[in-house]
């Protein structure tokens, strides 16, 4: 078996007395498209921030492409494409210069034009990003993530601010990248899209993984109808009537059945 693209072990992040992520055990296999879902505040962005070395864990550990997010940051970021959440582009810098920064730092030989064409920004190459709409910014950020044919794409809420064309673009890009052999890990609220794109889902609630598997696996496991959507699964697993304390003692619902340890 190849090295998992992402592997976390008891990954925990506390801010003072607030627990943002509580002992996450997550494995994303190489080559799959993994959708990371959860209500607002569940810890999705915290997880991604930890994987990208934006924040440091309180406890536990993580490897990405077999590398340590902190010790191996240069080698790791060389092979990862990142579309962050709640970012801001550089106002005075053109779209082309945004790409040049990433291309030159990664020492890739990508053509900025080709990348901009791929995300539908050909005509805006020389306009400063400060003039961009939210959707255009998101397309630019996606193009930056694609530089250097990364082995792993980490996309935090990639559908944010996009119109239906943009949403379809993200879907196409994900398909193209996985055809090339890349792994895609993304977080999202846009559940209908997740269903179309993902091989496997992980559902995070109150800082812990409450379910993981394929959509079919979830339908079986949760006794849902065979045409149940990701939304049905999501609501079933993250209903606020369920107290997080109680949940954590329960086994995790996995597509293969019920795992023994559960998420602590």
């Amino acid at each position: 078996m190849t090295t998992p693209a992402i592997d976390t072990d008891g990954l925990t992040k506390r801010y003072g007395s607030t627990v943002a992520l509580d002992g996450l055990d997550l494995t994303v296999e190489s080559g799959e498209v993994y959708g990371f879902l959860g209500p607002n505040g569940a810890g999705k962005s915290t997880t991604i921030n930890l994987l990208l070395n934006y924040v440091r864990p309180t406890d536990g550990s993580a490897t990405v492409l077999g590398l340590d997010p902190w010790d191996d940051v240069v080698a790791l970021h060389d092979r990862v494409g990142i579309l962050p959440d709640r970012y801001d582009t550089y106002d005075g810098l053109s779209a082309r210069r945004h790409l040049r920064l990433v291309i030159d730092t990664k020492r890739s030989d990508d053509d900025p034009e080709a990348l901009l064409t791929r995300v539908g920004l050909t005509d805006a190459a020389d306009r400063p990003a400060g003039e961009f709409s939210q959707g255009m910014e998101q397309r630019l950020a996606l193009a930056m993530a694609l530089v250097g044919d990364p082995d792993l794409l980490i996309l935090d809420e990639p559908f944010t601010g996009l119109d239906p064309h943009g949403v379809a673009l993200v879907r196409d890009v994900v398909a193209e990248e996985t055809d090339r052999g890349a792994t895609v890990f993304f977080s999202s609220h846009v559940l209908g899209q997740v269903e179309l794109v993902c091989d496997r889902l992980g559902i995070l609630h109150h800082g812990s993984l409450v379910g993981e598997g394929t959509l079919d696996g979830f339908r079986d496991r949760l006794d849902l109808a065979t045409d149940a959507t990701v939304e049905d699964v999501f609501v079933e697993l993250t209903e606020d009537g369920v107290r997080p304390e109680a949940e954590r003692d329960e086994p995790v619902a996995t597509a293969e059945g019920v795992s023994e340890g559960g998420a602590r």
């Binding site: 934006y54 240069v74 970012y87 582009t89 550089y90």
Partner: peptide, 20 residues
């Protein structure tokens, strides 16, 4: 300023150490 606006995420996402 970049930290507050979020653009620092691009710089930190590059293959560079924070010292770099």
């Amino acid at each position: 300023g970049e930290r507050t606006s979020g653009s620092l995420k691009f710089a930190l996402g590059l293959p560079l150490t924070r010292t770099d």
